[in-house]
Simulated assay, not measured.
Amino acid sequence: MFKKTVFGRFVDIELGFNIPLIHHMLLREVKKSGVDSISFFFRGKVVTFSKDDFLLITGLWRFPTQVVRSEKSSQELFTRYFGNRSILDAFHLNLLEEEYKKLVFENDNDAVKITLVYYTEVAMIGKNKQKNVVDGTLFDDVEDIDYYNNLDWGTIIWQRTLDALKTALDDKVGLYKESVRGNKNYVVKDSLHGFSQAFQVDVP
Rank of each mutant, 00 (worst) to 15 (best):
E29V: 15
F54V: 03
S196T: 15
G44L: 00
M1N: 05
R43I: 02
S33A: 12
L103I: 12
E14I: 10
V188D: 13
L26N: 05
F17H: 04
V46Y: 08
P20K: 00
S33W: 00
V187D: 12
N84T: 12
R28N: 15
V11I: 14
Q130W: 07
V47W: 00
K131I: 11
N132P: 06
V117I: 11
R43H: 08
N109W: 03
H24I: 04
I114F: 02
F7P: 04
A123C: 12
T161F: 05
S39I: 08
E71C: 05
Y81P: 00
F91D: 04
V35Q: 13
Y147W: 08
V46M: 00
K3F: 06
K101V: 06
E71P: 04
V30M: 11
V187W: 05
D152Q: 09
F42P: 02
K166Y: 03
R85H: 12
Y119D: 12
G16S: 13
D52M: 10
R160Q: 15
Y147I: 07
D36M: 00
G182S: 07
R160L: 12
Y186L: 07
I156T: 10
N107G: 08
K131C: 08
L55I: 15
M1D: 11
F195Y: 15
V68I: 14
R69A: 06
L162M: 01
I157M: 02
N109H: 03
A90H: 15
D146P: 03
M124N: 05
I114E: 05
I125L: 15
F10G: 06
E97M: 09
K45A: 11
A90M: 13
D141W: 05
L95H: 12
G16F: 06
N94L: 07
T65E: 14
L116Y: 09
L138C: 01
F17P: 08
E29R: 15
V6W: 05
L21D: 10
V35S: 10
A198H: 03
K101E: 15
Y100M: 04
Q75L: 06
K184P: 10
V6Y: 11
V67I: 15
Y186A: 06
N84R: 14
F195R: 04
N183Y: 13
D110C: 03
M25A: 09
L88M: 14
L192Q: 04
L88W: 11
E106P: 00
F42E: 10
M124F: 09
D171H: 11
T48F: 01
S74A: 07
L165M: 03
